Simulated scan of single mutants.
Amino acid sequence: MKALFIGGTGTISTAISSQLIQNGCELYLLNRGNRNNLLPDGAKELKADINDEQAVAALIKGLSFDVVADFIAFVPSQLERDYRLFKDKTRQFIFISSASAYQKPLSDYCITEGTPLANPYWAYSRNKIACEEFLLRLYRDKGFPITIVRPSHTYDERSIPLGVHGSKGSWPVAKRMLEGKPVIIHGDGTSLWTMTHSSDFARAFIGLMGNIHALGETVQITSDETVTWNQIYESIATALGVKLNAVHVASDFLAACGMLIGVDYGGALLGDKANSVVFNNAKLKRFVPGFTATVRFDEGIRQTVDFILSHPEYQTDDPEFDAWCDKVVVAQQQALKAVFG
């Protein structure tokens, strides 16, 4: 198989790239070359900014692919560009959408690809919906061979997956755990969530590549494991070897307070993580027979924590977020004192 990835060094795409190389795929990665240390040995780099359409057209002149996948398209105009570049150069174009595009609030707790798309809380999700609609029109009207993939919360060894963190990533929350400080969990922590390890996602994604049954289709890729946010944070604390000091804070209150540090919890929480989600992956398993996600969250998070603790370059402090957490916790305590006198 001959494939081109636009991006290729993110949480999802890095795992896919590595597995494809191991499978003998002829893989091209189109990116700006800023994260060359993450490129798998054997991949062929096409160094360019995808937004420089003329430069990219020159790079791919004379090339054609079995699969082109764009991991960094977020608005329809970017897909309009992709169509111009690849309409005659690929047998399959894969777009990475998002499970956050599903309706909020849900009308049914169990999510399938037929669940309606609507997210009034998050522009990111609405843009992904618009991208899907654009591609489906291309498929219907022009026969462009698209496949739409909807991931949910996918993680790898480089970042601890959380519900509430600052703009500099998840390490500051882990650091608070290690220091015994209060750690904020949105809501009461009992809402249901699904975490998917990138290695599991990669195996499913590769099963869709070059798959004739996936053309014109939308497929979600998640683990079948369902966990609560309390279980997620407890698993992280256990992996760190500490006792969790959890403080539960209402999601809408966090959404309002997030503006103080420039974080959109209105989208990330109210439009995504504050909602209970359970995914039905029957369609994926029909297209990729035998696929099962095998990395249980408590096992996967141990690998992540071990990696981050041994790699200081992934331990980025965020004093602003740390102070914000303390401020939110104190505000909630003061509110309780005001009520009870």
Rank of each mutant, 00 (worst) to 15 (best):
E313Q: 13
A323E: 11
D322S: 04
Q332V: 11
R302S: 13
Y314T: 10
E313Y: 13
L309R: 10
A282W: 07
G300L: 03
N281F: 02
C325N: 05
I308P: 01
S310T: 02
G341L: 07
E313W: 12
D298G: 03
R302D: 12
N281V: 14
K327D: 06
K337M: 13
R296D: 07
V330N: 06
Q315V: 11
F340P: 00
N281C: 12
E320D: 08
V339S: 12
A331E: 13
C325P: 01
F307K: 03
C325H: 02
A335D: 14
L336C: 13
V305K: 02
V288R: 01
H311L: 03
L284S: 00
E313K: 13
T304A: 07
P289M: 13
V330T: 11
L309N: 10
Q315G: 06
W324T: 01
D317K: 01
A282G: 10
Q315H: 07
T304C: 09
T304M: 03
R296N: 10
T316N: 06
E299A: 11
W324L: 02
V339D: 14
F297C: 04
V278A: 15
R302I: 11
N280Y: 15
S310G: 05
G341P: 00
G290R: 15
H311I: 06
Q315L: 06
K327I: 02
H311K: 07
P289W: 12
V295I: 09
F287A: 02
E320A: 08
E320T: 08
F287K: 07
R296Q: 07
Q334M: 14
P289V: 09
R286C: 03
G290N: 15
V329S: 08
C325Y: 02
G300A: 07
K283H: 11
K285V: 05
F297Q: 01
K337F: 11
A323N: 10
D318E: 00
R296C: 07
P312Y: 08
A282M: 11
V288E: 01
D322Y: 05
Q332C: 10
A282P: 09
P312H: 09
G290E: 15
G290F: 15
F291S: 08
I308G: 04
A331W: 09
A282F: 08
S310L: 03
T292C: 13
A335S: 15
I308R: 00
F321L: 01
R302H: 14
V278M: 15
Q315K: 10
V330A: 06
V329Y: 10
Q333N: 14
C325T: 05
Q332W: 10
A282V: 10
V339G: 06
H311W: 02
T294Y: 04
V277P: 00
Q315W: 07
D317Q: 03
V295D: 03
T304Q: 03
H311C: 03
Q334G: 14
A338L: 12
D306G: 04
A338Y: 14
V329G: 10
W324S: 01
N280E: 15
D318K: 00
Q333V: 08
Q303N: 12
F340N: 12
A335Q: 15
T304P: 01
G300R: 04
I301N: 00
F340S: 13
D298Q: 12
